[in-house]
Design a protein around this nucleic acid. Structure first.
Lengths: 323, 323
DNA sequence: CATCATTTGTGCGTATGTATC
DNA sequence: AGATACATACGCACAAATGAT
């Protein structure tokens, strides 16, 4: 591929040696100028999704720069999620996938440990993946990992504990059958509310005393209700291992959805966190506001179907999950 | 910052010359091994927030690699938001700032164009910034830009229009006085519901016919209610210009909060979009679920104060805004 | 099936510029 | 002013993946 089919029509293209000096005078790095030029080409659809960019050597010839400089420009575009690079093939404009929705605030709500949770998840098309780095005593892979950990600053703050305080941590990974989406689910419980023998709790005890109960939610909230839920949403860039485990495309952040369960005094009991590819997932809220409700309308019952049946439900393709 | 679920492989740290060869055999790029080593050092607090990493030359000596290779490793960490690089000074571990909350679903709700909006925003500590690239006829800066645009694919999908359909677009930027946070606010209205003379609407007409009314919301919803709101949250990486305009740190995604106003038949009328630094902002939902409500409790009235007064309101420092 | 040209990935050495202290 | 540190940029070599022959 020579790239000869491309029509450069921007003044910033085709840098001659003299023009190169002019840009150098402008105190703007060459790679940035080139990135801006390519970015404009993509956003203004001179390169359409799926189409290849000219090869790095072709670009370095066109812009009269070295290949490392072109690569710096391409890296910037990769970081913006505009292109993806395939070794041995080339650099391609990314087609942005449709976003699906995780519906927050819907009923029924389940604790991740509850018996109702896994059937519900299956019903919505999710199957559990083997947990990473989690083998049982015979070396077999297990589907979820449960252990007592020291809380890092983030988890501790969320649960109202000091950093380093022990928390009961359960983690699992799920794949959505039709879309292939992978999400990570982590749950952190304040250990004091789990009825395990003091002074040294361990995972086996936790299983016996909590998971064998019909409802982990009932176990930890017993006598502490009425409880409240608070859901927050933010995002950050994934670490290298997260990108691999969740099959994220380079340049895509992860959406972090946290649901905090608090007792009647507002003290946090448990926090459940879902990590999902922000490029393919958005959150929507089920219990939306209305100017007026129709006679006899109960939002708790109706809003899920209403959102799902919307004739043109915005960028969300389909609702994938309730939390 | 989390990292709780990140499992650093201690064996891979502190490469000696011989170890380097071993890793080369392992088919793992040197820069990746070095990045993993430094990442573990940071997440396990061997380098604490604010502390400098060794200089690039020092690192290249320690790991016995060239400086460009060390720089590749550092770039990976920058992309993960773990370190920031200051030219002439060094590379520093980032102190992750507290996240503040934008509260969704709270009353009263205002259209961005309404007279109530600006006082409300001021009351919450926000001041308007000059809109970028927006000058009036005398070359003075203006605070917001209003124009009729062709909708791109994303906006068109959200509003249920075809790509390229004209939309009424208003944009502004705001800075939060005490935190210094900058958010971008964009609003897109389906033009057919704005009472402007056909066939060729223009900005001046829109102002006359819409903004001079006491309530833009009333204008566009008149006869179309009861209306519904739907709020969605997702994230993506910023483009270079967005990073500059919103003073984002490198490696931080932007949180995209969209509020869609629809008529009684579910047809979208208007979409308001807030873009904020995901590293410093999260969303929370005001109308949370409770197992039971206390006698006489009206969530519409109480939930804002309840969230604001929570003894330990999770990672959110303080609520910054209602949407 | 092997071979080959093309394309990106990794890594080195070097030089120069510029910001900071 | 000098030392230090990062930023930009070039050239080169070889490895690895891909797709066509």
């Amino acid at each position: 591929m020579t790239g000869s089919d491309y029509e450069p029509d921007i003044n910033e293209l085709d840098l001659s040696d003299e023009e190169r000096d002019r840009f150098a005078d402008a105190q703007r790095p060459l790679w940035e100028v080139i990135a801006a030029s390519l970015r404009a080409d993509i956003l203004e659809a001179r390169y359409t999704p799926g189409a290849p960019l000219p090869s790095e050597t072709a670009l370095s010839t066109r812009y009269s720069v070295s290949r490392p400089t072109v690569r710096d420009a391409v890296k910037a575009l990769v970081g913006e999620g505009l292109v993806s690079v395939v070794r041995g093939r080339g650099t391609f404009v990314r087609a942005v996938p449709d976003r699906h929705a995780i519906l927050l605030g819907a009923w029924p709500r389940h604790d991740i440990a509850d018996a109702e949770f896994i059937p519900t998840a299956h019903q919505w098309g999710w199957t559990q993946l083997a947990a990473p780095h989690a083998d049982d005593d015979e070396g077999r892979q297990v589907y979820s990992r449960s252990e007592f950990n020291a809380a890092n600053r983030d988890i501790a703050t969320t649960l109202g504990l000091r950093t380093g305080h022990t928390v009961f941590h359960r983690s699992s990974r799920w794949r959505h059958t039709t879309t292939g989406l992978i999400i990570g689910v982590n749950s952190y419980t304040v250990p004091e509310i789990i009825p395990v023998p003091a002074p040294k709790p361990n995972v086996a005890d936790a299983f016996v005393h909590a998971f064998t109960q019909p409802s982990f939610y009932d176990t930890i909230t017993s006598g502490r209700g009425p409880t409240t839920w608070e859901t927050t949403v933010t995002a950050r860039m994934p670490y290298a291992d997260e990108r691999e485990l969740m099959a994220l495309s380079v340049g895509s952040p992860i959406l972090i959805i946290r649901r905090i369960l608090a007792d009647k005094d507002g003290r946090p009991l448990e926090m459940t966190e879902i990590k999902a590819d922000a490029e393919r997932i958005e959150t929507a809220y089920a219990r939306e506001n209305h100017d007026t409700y129709p006679e006899g309308f109960d939002p708790d019952i109706h809003d899920i179907e209403q959102l799902a049946d919307r004739p043109d439900p915005a960028p969300t393709g389909r609702i994938l999950f309730l939390l």
